[in-house]
Design a protein around this nucleic acid. Sequence first.
DNA 1: GCTATTCTGGACCAATCGGTCCCCAACTGC
DNA 2: GCAGTTGGGGACCGATTGGTCCAGAATAGC
Lengths: 195, 195
Amino acid sequence: MARPQAFNTTEALHQAMNVFWHKGYEATSMADLLAATGLSKSSLYAAFGGKRELFVAAFDAYREAREREMRRMLAHRPAREAIEGFFRKIVLDAGDGDPSRGCMSINQAVEMAPRDPEIRGRVLQDFTLIEEALAEAIARGQAEGSVGDAYDARHLARLLVLAFPGLQIMVRAGSDRARLDDSLNSLLFMLDRDH
Amino acid sequence: MARPQAFNTTEALHQAMNVFWHKGYEATSMADLLAATGLSKSSLYAAFGGKRELFVAAFDAYREAREREMRRMLAHRPAREAIEGFFRKIVLDAGDGDPSRGCMSINQAVEMAPRDPEIRGRVLQDFTLIEEALAEAIARGQAEGSVGDAYDARHLARLLVLAFPGLQIMVRAGSDRARLDDSLNSLLFMLDRDH
DNA sequence: GCTATTCTGGACCAATCGGTCCCCAACTGC
DNA sequence: GCAGTTGGGGACCGATTGGTCCAGAATAGC
């Protein structure tokens, strides 16, 4: 054993992830990734393989982080507030910091999923993951009375899962805040008790 | 005046549009466009300018065609059926023919809109276009009694506009038909009279 | 301090990118 | 049929793409 690695692998992965999140796969060049991570070409190739492998690793890191975050937010009580918080965070992230990134899974549903089965599988899995988590939260909310029970939980969950990419895409396309809030409120209204 | 153009310009534009629709902007090479249109390089450049100009022209052609189609479908009566038809067509297009294309405006909301103001403007305009058309159809449906009036038209329109990208993206990501239908039914249920 | 091993900067690669240009063929108007 | 003009095939361009490789620097174990 000799000469330890001079960079933090997970940190480099995180920075690569951010570039891919912003620019997507095709529009990101190795030069971009080198600049973002600060690594030299040989180091990056040695650590991650090629561009595609790096992308997949970055995507998986993203998905894991986001899933954890979703579960954390949806665990709050009452469930109605938890769900609202989950969706409000999407539009909050829009204004915060640099231009809109949206959700990387949604972005990849557009870019890679149609032609790359490996990515497609991950994207589809993310959809079911979100639906299950939301359905669970809604059921809990209905049991405790914070969410209206005019519609059954699965039904509402499907509606929210359908709206999720909608919000993410409006964010990424740069919709203004007022419009995002309007849409969001229309959506959350469905969770209310009466009607 | 001499030697007439040997190709149909709008036809070539249409074929270019299809490539861009499938692959997006970055992933489409000039070689792809040449192959799809059957033109030679000089002809294509003379007729449309560069790749970007061709893309914008193709995108505009797409948007115009789709807007016309939307208005035609939403004009049907009763309004409830018109709206249902509009959304059902999205999932019908999925199975029909080659792998999923989704909606080019939604795809571009992800790919180009964040970094290209000209495209962003068009995408945002498309969102309002759809919302207005839906709001109008919903109001008509409520007046004639085919759409429930538990929620006001603007409210419902926002919900549908939010769900529109959701469906398009599920289609593009290759969701199976059963899931698409489930989501669609959950959405359309919101239009019903009772509740 | 020596040696063995690992890491890293950057030269180098072929392929492909979008784009330009020239020259000949084709066609219209007379 | 001739003159004049325009269209189009394809050679060519520099820049950039993702990727390989090697020589030398750095460091651990002894």
